[in-house]
């Protein structure tokens, strides 16, 4: 049993610690006033909606409000799981996101490695600058440009096809082609910009490593394999983890704009379905349930992949 003086000393230490902290807060009041502002924003537009998610377990009606509406348990979830759309929407979402994961994770890495091997400085920066540009173009314009190029009337590609005696292809109204159009237009827009984080990681590699390797007669491929890739490995792992964490989040913005009646069987994904059920049909609770389901799956994926990364290597998100 500890004697009383020891306990007292401990307590007074704690008290001193607390007093010190309090003193800091008082002395730097303005720092806390500053951070209060982003905190208010986050409470209103992030935490308040998180509380609002409980309508997924209720029959929300505006007259009763979020808290007053009656609880219904998992009713909306069961309805979603049993609905005709469930399998289709989930499958569409997974198809697009896995396809896009397979293509859009490795391509920027390969491109960044190629950029890194250019020795002519002005050429390197010119190519980089040009390939970054599409990243800044709005989705509305991207979809507009897809129409310019792939439209069946006066689309550039179809005009070319017809010039060479082929038959016009309905790129935009085909459910089979939709995933390709979606993923590769995304590559066109994002692959250049996607190299940036790898270029950043590569700029931290000490040059003498390459010099030593060259002196020993290593080839360019050996240098890439043994120096560059290991150096950017942590960045690759983090990007891959984050990408899998968005597996259920096929973006609304572009999908919605590319959707039409004839490609809906592959283009209806969770985000567009949530929007239509919620804001178009006014089924708030049902839509909130679908949204919550997709968030949850995303987080589970992120968590599992992160665990896996911790297990295999030494890089992970947390």
């Amino acid at each position: 049993m500890p004697n009383t003086t020891e306990v007292k000393v401990e307590q007074s230490d704690k008290r001193k610690e607390r007093a010190k902290r309090w003193h800091y807060v008082k002395r730097h009041k303005s720092l806390y006033l500053m951070i209060l502002i982003p905190i208010i924003f986050v409470i209103i537009w992030n935490y308040w909606p998180m509380y609002g998610v409980i309508i997924a377990f209720k029959d929300y009606s505006p007259a009763y409000g979020i808290w007053g509406s009656p609880w219904v348990g998992f009713k909306h979830f069961t309805r979603f799981f049993q609905s005709y759309f469930f399998g289709n929407v989930i499958w569409n979402t997974l198809r697009i996101s896995i396809y896009s994961l397979i293509v859009s994770v490795p391509l920027p890495i390969i491109l960044a490695l190629m950029f890194n091997e250019i020795r002519v400085k002005w050429l390197k920066s010119t190519i980089q600058t040009i390939t970054y540009i599409p990243n800044f173009i709005s989705v509305v314009i991207i979809v507009g440009m897809i129409n310019f190029f792939f439209g069946s009337q006066n689309g550039v590609i179809n005009n070319l096809v017809e010039m060479f005696g082929g038959k016009s292809i309905d790129f935009l109204g085909s459910s089979g082609i939709f995933p390709h159009m979606y993923v590769w237009s995304g590559i066109w827009q994002g692959v250049g910009w996607g190299t940036l984080i790898y270029t950043a990681a590569m700029s931290g590699i000490p040059q003498d490593q390459y010099e030593a390797a060259y002196l020993e007669g290593a080839s360019r491929f050996q240098c890439i394999k043994n120096i560059t890739i290991p150096a950017i490995m942590p960045t690759i792992v983090i990007s891959a983890i984050l990408a899998t964490g968005g597996i259920m989040a096929v973006g609304f913005d572009k999908t919605f704009l590319m959707q039409n009646a004839s490609n809906l069987s592959t283009s209806e994904v969770l985000s567009t379905y949530t929007y239509k059920m919620g804001l178009v049909n006014g089924e708030y609770s049902f839509s909130a349930a679908v949204g919550l389901f997709s968030n949850l799956i995303n987080f589970i994926f992120l968590w599992v992949v992160n665990k896996f990364a911790q297990h295999v290597g030494d890089t992970s998100l947390w």
């Binding site: 935490y47 308040w48 998180m50 509380y51 609002g52 309508i55 949530t274 968030n295 987080f299 992120l302």
Partner: peptide, 18 residues
């Protein structure tokens, strides 16, 4: 407090209601 919001969100409808 801030980073939690990077991983969890209320979603479309709850945000709309806010």
């Amino acid at each position: 407090f801030f980073t939690i919001t990077m991983f969890f969100s209320g979603g479309l409808i709850p945000t709309y209601l806010v």
